[in-house]
Design a protein around this nucleic acid. Sequence first.
DNA 1: GCTTACAATATACAAGTGTATATACACTTG
DNA 2: CAAGTGTATATACACTTGTATATTGTAAGC
Lengths: 215, 215
Amino acid sequence: MRLTRKKNNDVEQEKPGRKPAISEQELMEAAVRLVDSKRSVSSLSLREIAREAGIAPNSFYRHFRDVDELAVALIDRAGRGLRGTIREARKRLESDRGGVRSSVQVFMEALDDDQKYLKILLREISIGSDAFRNAVDRELNYFEEELNDELLRIVEASGQKIHKPRLVAKAITRLVFTLGASAANMNLQQRNDLTEETVAMVQMIIIGANAMAKR
Amino acid sequence: MRLTRKKNNDVEQEKPGRKPAISEQELMEAAVRLVDSKRSVSSLSLREIAREAGIAPNSFYRHFRDVDELAVALIDRAGRGLRGTIREARKRLESDRGGVRSSVQVFMEALDDDQKYLKILLREISIGSDAFRNAVDRELNYFEEELNDELLRIVEASGQKIHKPRLVAKAITRLVFTLGASAANMNLQQRNDLTEETVAMVQMIIIGANAMAKR
DNA sequence: GCTTACAATATACAAGTGTATATACACTTG
DNA sequence: CAAGTGTATATACACTTGTATATTGTAAGC
């Protein structure tokens, strides 16, 4: 493959040959335009993207080897935007009171950013049809409810207190499922490590909720 | 559409017509066989599944309207298995010492279950090409590191302590991204609610990590 | 045993896909 | 200006896809 990615040196070597009619940037933007709530980047076809960008299908190859490579470039791009978001969130964290809240807000607001790269990055995490997503959600909720019941039971039995058990259940559920998803392709050693990490995280949440109840 | 889903009444009405050569069960199993680390259920084509199951493409319609409907059925099926897992995890949770650990273990071990439905459910949460997943992972790690630095800075400045800051950063990162992903399609009100929830969860983790450091 | 009802198949089609090949174009360099 | 070079396009091919239509096969009911 021969990517002709733009380097950031101002001195541009003048080369023979026709000037590119389109940049990688523009191709990526064309792809972004095609991504909506139903479609993921990786479900786009090379031809679709070329059509949207107004170039011939084969011209696509001048810029990316295939759609996956474009998708990766999109994520990199999203990352660049994300870094700005992080910087802002860090600033907010310093100003201590309500730091967490306004940091989280920065993140959520970034979803509406003009160039919706972050939104795309996140969408790739949970795609599929509506019906499909709903089915998954249903299972998560079921898990959450069970966990909530159990937390209440334990708390009552032990005479302890717990802050917002519903939220505790939700946090643990999301965490366990996300980490579980990444465990799917791991070997035994890695998975054991991850299990230990998960356990520690869950304990943090529970102990935290406990501490908050005592205030 | 006319699904002929099996109902669980033992009295089966004898009907005229040829006996089904294949069940929904078998079709689902064929789909499962085709799902590997690279492919998601919803990326399978109707013809592929029919081929794998050894039936004519059109026969697929006798069982499901389309691939998405089969995918949903798969998730439902995964949910049934998951309930068994939850029941087991709840039992472990009761036996107090090490309850969290062995509950999490139950969950992780369910990934290797013979019928790998849970694995499929989780895989749908994070699909895409290898390169793509790596790109997303890179961004998550970057976020995590930044957060870690910030935590250390704050802790040092305030003279407090914190338990396993690295893990705290990881937990918060995964949580914020997962919840952020689900925020992508929400209206303002819903998103504000979610933001509040996220803030509370993050605080639980931080306070928990703080409490654990004081022991 | 004939009709009826349903399941499964075969054939076919239009639409879309990725990409190989060949050719036209625009630009620099000698 | 001619040669050379990188870019873009047009055409074409083999393939896959979802599904419409028509046909065949099989079991039950009268």
